[in-house]
Each structure stands twice: as structure tokens, then as C-alpha cells.
């Protein structure tokens, strides 16, 4: 019994370990992969990724925090619907999200068509489209974590502070936010990681163009599918994304540790 558990556990661990070992090994083994890391197009993709994810995470915080708070305190009519709606992008395949975004904000979309008719502006193929795609798939992760964080804050504490004369905004800033800090940060990191890894919705909704909409994951696909960087480029870009993911996880772990103490 113990042996079976040990074997299953080892196999499971190896299953997750080997792909990363393979990636690192390939990057070390193939000098072209290291060369590709220095290619200007890699820096461009990194810049696009950082720029777009910064904006989409900011938008997620800006719109997601009030939504999460309202959902946690159940003060919204139709809150259950909003709750279910926000879960949908988490379980939905990103490619479906991309198609759905086109039907709403594309040039022939419900909102996209009248907007283009009025202003001449179209969303697809722009950096804004990348941000929209990222926000659509990633913000729900933040809202979910933030909502759980707010729910864990005792409403009594907020009520007491209110009786002592603090304004609602003051209570939120000084009582609620600090108490929910851990889950909020965890949500932020998850949201950022998801936005950084976004591929399917972006490819369909925003397309792929170097210097405009081609983020790191899209650059991996372009390199793999015969782009000038080739497979070594795909390996190099993957390594870069892996390093970013590890860094994000490290931040999360560190914050969790500090939150516990």
C-alpha cells in the first residue's frame, strides 16, 4: 500500500518535473536557443507582454475590487447571476472567449459594428484588443480570490468602525483592505499569470503582429510554426515565460508567508 502510494507519487512528480527539465536542457544544449534570447523580436514580445498585462491587471483591480466587495457583502440585485457570469471565463476554453469577443466587439460584432460606423475605430488587431482579451479571461480569477478575501473579513469589525465615526471609504481602506490583503495579492498574482499566458483568445480576437499584438505566448507559436526564430526561438521564449512564472509564484509564496506571520 505504502509502496503503491510512493510509486504513484513519484510518477506524478516526474510527470510535472520532466517537461521543465526538458525545456531547460534544450535551452542549454542548443546554442541557437541562447542566441535567440538576444534577438530583438524577443525583447519586443516581452515589452508587449509587460505593457498589456500591466494594463489588464490594473483594469482587473479597478473594476474587479468593487465587484468582489459587493458580491462578498451580497448587496447587489442579481448578484448570483454576476457571480456565475464571472466564473464562466475561468472554465471556458480561451478560444471560445476569443470567438465570443469577436461577436461582441469585432467589426461585425453587436457593439463593434455601430462603434466603427460612428467613429471609424475598430478594436480587433490593436493592442487594446490584447488587453480586452487578457482582462476577459484573467479578471475573474482576481474577483474570485478577492471575493473570498472580503468574505473572510468580519462585517462586525466594519460596523464597529462605522459606529466610531469612520466613513465607508475610510473603513474600506483601513479595515477591510488590510485584512483581505493576502487573498487580494494571491488573486492579483493569479490574474497576472493568466493574463501573461493568454494565447487562444488573443490569437482569435487580436491577431498576431510583431510590435503590436504579438505577446510572448503568441511569439512562441509564431516561432514554433516556422517563424524566423524557429524551434530554438520557441524554446528560448518558453524559458523566458517559465522564469516569469517562477518569479510570480515566488512572490506569491513570499507574500503568503508574510501574511501568515
Amino acid at each position: 500500500m505504502t509502496l503503491a502510494v510512493a510509486v504513484l507519487g513519484t510518477v506524478f512528480a516526474l510527470f510535472f518535473l520532466l517537461p521543465f527539465v526538458g525545456l531547460v536542457w534544450r535551452a542549454i544544449d542548443d546554442p541557437r536557443a541562447r542566441e535567440a534570447l538576444g534577438d530583438p523580436s524577443v525583447a519586443t514580445a516581452l515589452r508587449i507582454s509587460m505593457l498589456t498585462t500591466s494594463v489588464s491587471v490594473t483594469l482587473s483591480l479597478l473594476f474587479g475590487t468593487p465587484a468582489a466587495y459587493l458580491l462578498a457583502r451580497r448587496q447587489v440585485p442579481g448578484g448570483a447571476v454576476l457571480d456565475a457570469l464571472l466564473d464562466l471565463p475561468i472554465v471556458l476554453p480561451p478560444t471560445v472567449a476569443g470567438v465570443a469577443l469577436l461577436t461582441a466587439f469585432g467589426r461585425r460584432g453587436l457593439l463593434g459594428e455601430p462603434i466603427e460606423a460612428l467613429t471609424g475605430l475598430a478594436l480587433p488587431f490593436t493592442m487594446l484588443a490584447v488587453i480586452v482579451a487578457q482582462t476577459f479571461v484573467a479578471a475573474p480569477l482576481y474577483v474570485r480570490a478577492a471575493r473570498a478575501g472580503f468574505e473572510a473579513v468580519d462585517p462586525e469589525l466594519e460596523a464597529i468602525a462605522r459606529t466610531l465615526g469612520a466613513s465607508r471609504a475610510h473603513v474600506f481602506r483601513r479595515i477591510t483592505l488590510p485584512l483581505a490583503r493576502g487573498p487580494l495579492l494571491a488573486g492579483l498574482v493569479l490574474c497576472w499569470a493568466r493574463a501573461l499566458g493568454e494565447l487562444g483568445a488573443t490569437l482569435i480576437f487580436a491577431g498576431s503582429l510583431v510590435g503590436r499584438t504579438q505577446t510572448l505566448p503568441l511569439a512562441v507559436v509564431a516561432a514554433f510554426e516556422g517563424g524566423p526564430l524557429g524551434l530554438p526561438g520557441a524554446v528560448a521564449l518558453s524559458l523566458l515565460l517559465l522564469a516569469t512564472a517562477v518569479a510570480l509564484l515566488a512572490v506569491l509564496r513570499l507574500a503568503a508567508k508574510r501574511g501568515l506571520t
Binding site: L209, R212, A222
Partner: peptide, 20 residues
């Protein structure tokens, strides 16, 4: 004028089919 570089010819065609 190029707005996107797609992974294969059918992905290119789809962008036209969609009117994007």
C-alpha cells in the same frame, strides 16, 4: 497595412470571412 500574421492560410482566410 498588415494587421496580423496568421499561423496558416486558413486562419488568414477566417479573418476575411469574419469581416475583420
Amino acid at each position: 497595412n498588415v494587421r496580423s500574421r496568421e499561423a496558416n492560410v486558413r486562419a488568414v482566410l477566417t479573418k476575411v470571412q469574419l469581416g475583420e
